[in-house]
Simulated scan of single mutants.
Amino acid sequence: MRHKPTLFTGGYAPEGAVKWVEELEIIFEAMGCSEASKLTLGTYVLREEANKWWKMAKLRMGVGGVVITWEMFKGEFLRKYFPEDIKGKKVIEFMELKQGNMSVADYSVKFEELCVFSPHYNTVEAEHDKCVKFENGLRPDIKHLIGFSQIRDFATLVEKSRICDDDGKAKTNYYKAIGDNKRGKGQDRVKPYFDKGKKVAENSGGRRKFTSQCFKCGEMGHKSYECPKKVLQEGHKSPTCKKPRKTMGKVFALNGDDADQVDNLIR
């Protein structure tokens, strides 16, 4: 066959069995196969354990000359390779599905993937219920924007929800960029005060490093409270100090009579 469907060998692979059936039905539609041809072509690609199962199933299903159709085969095939307990888990997973941290695009893909296991939601009459189920699983921020529109066409609902999701992400990234820019400018304004009293030098690796400058002696490499010159000046007794002693001046208030009695008064 030109479309080369995947061979199915059997074994326990529930999801693989479902995908195999879906792939075949896509090929059948593309080729315009009749119901009789579908069964022939579908069973042709069964191999190993699956082929042995079909030989036994065909004998059982064809008792009394019953004509086996593709739909009959598919039902028997899925009962064998997609057990009811696995199907039940998929139905529960679908009913509990929420968007959570997924994008709307990823959520819609997961929704459609699990929806096939709930036949009620796969009919034209259930379009309304399908939209309600999808909408209820959206995140609150998107559901708040979409809910009031009451969109009941599934394709339109998915598209509008995706646009809201993309717009929300763009808005978040925009304000985040503004916030980062403001924080960067704030750090630049504080930097001159941080560098006060320090000189910048570069080490051998090209990195900036700061060297402290003493405010008392003006030399580099130490701070004012560590200044060695300050220690020398304060580390001796006043009788041995070579510097001239500072004389403190005094101010007196005299009246006219007292001033006449003082000889050394500067007038």
Rank of each mutant, 00 (worst) to 15 (best):
residue 101 N to S: 10
residue 226 E to C: 04
residue 222 H to N: 07
residue 16 G to I: 00
residue 258 D to E: 10
residue 185 K to F: 11
residue 265 L to F: 10
residue 237 K to M: 04
residue 102 M to T: 00
residue 119 P to A: 06
residue 158 V to Q: 12
residue 238 S to P: 04
residue 211 T to H: 06
residue 117 F to T: 00
residue 104 V to H: 12
residue 70 W to R: 03
residue 89 K to W: 10
residue 83 P to K: 11
residue 41 L to W: 15
residue 39 L to N: 01
residue 53 W to G: 08
residue 187 Q to M: 13
residue 24 L to K: 13
residue 86 I to P: 01
residue 157 L to W: 10
residue 115 C to L: 03
residue 27 I to F: 07
residue 46 L to F: 11
residue 254 L to G: 03
residue 111 F to N: 02
residue 121 Y to R: 02
residue 130 K to E: 02
residue 55 K to D: 10
residue 196 K to Y: 08
residue 149 S to E: 11
residue 23 E to K: 11
residue 134 F to K: 07
residue 93 E to W: 07
residue 219 E to C: 10
residue 85 D to H: 13
residue 103 S to H: 09
residue 49 E to N: 05
residue 225 Y to L: 09
residue 176 K to I: 10
residue 33 C to F: 14
residue 16 G to L: 03
residue 27 I to A: 02
residue 134 F to M: 04
residue 18 V to Q: 03
residue 85 D to V: 08
residue 20 W to G: 08
residue 115 C to S: 15
residue 44 Y to D: 08
residue 128 H to G: 04
residue 97 L to D: 10
residue 244 P to K: 06
residue 86 I to A: 14
residue 243 K to D: 09
residue 90 K to P: 01
residue 53 W to L: 05
residue 48 E to N: 05
residue 163 I to T: 14
residue 143 K to G: 02
residue 54 W to L: 01
residue 167 D to K: 05
residue 130 K to L: 03
residue 136 N to Q: 13
residue 81 Y to C: 04
residue 45 V to S: 08
residue 125 E to F: 11
residue 186 G to I: 13
residue 244 P to D: 13
residue 51 N to P: 00
residue 65 G to F: 01
residue 110 K to D: 06
residue 123 T to Q: 04
residue 115 C to Y: 05
residue 30 A to N: 10
residue 230 K to Y: 10
residue 6 T to L: 00
residue 113 E to K: 12
residue 11 G to W: 08
residue 137 G to A: 02
residue 44 Y to W: 11
residue 221 G to W: 13
residue 106 D to K: 13
residue 138 L to W: 15
residue 145 L to N: 09
residue 71 E to C: 06
residue 27 I to N: 09
residue 75 G to A: 12
residue 182 K to T: 10
residue 72 M to V: 02
residue 236 H to L: 03
residue 159 E to C: 03
residue 226 E to F: 13
residue 104 V to W: 14
residue 217 C to D: 08
residue 266 I to S: 08
residue 103 S to Q: 05
residue 267 R to F: 11
residue 214 C to A: 02
residue 29 E to A: 01
residue 44 Y to M: 09
residue 188 D to P: 02
residue 186 G to R: 15
residue 11 G to Q: 09
residue 166 D to W: 15
residue 181 N to G: 00
residue 254 L to S: 04
residue 166 D to G: 00
residue 114 L to E: 10
residue 23 E to H: 10
residue 158 V to D: 06
residue 118 S to Q: 12
residue 60 R to Q: 12
residue 92 I to Y: 06
residue 125 E to R: 13
residue 164 C to D: 14
residue 87 K to W: 12
residue 44 Y to A: 08
residue 57 A to H: 05
residue 45 V to C: 09
residue 130 K to M: 01
residue 172 T to D: 08
residue 14 P to M: 12
residue 233 Q to P: 00
residue 160 K to G: 00
residue 93 E to Y: 06
residue 210 F to D: 15
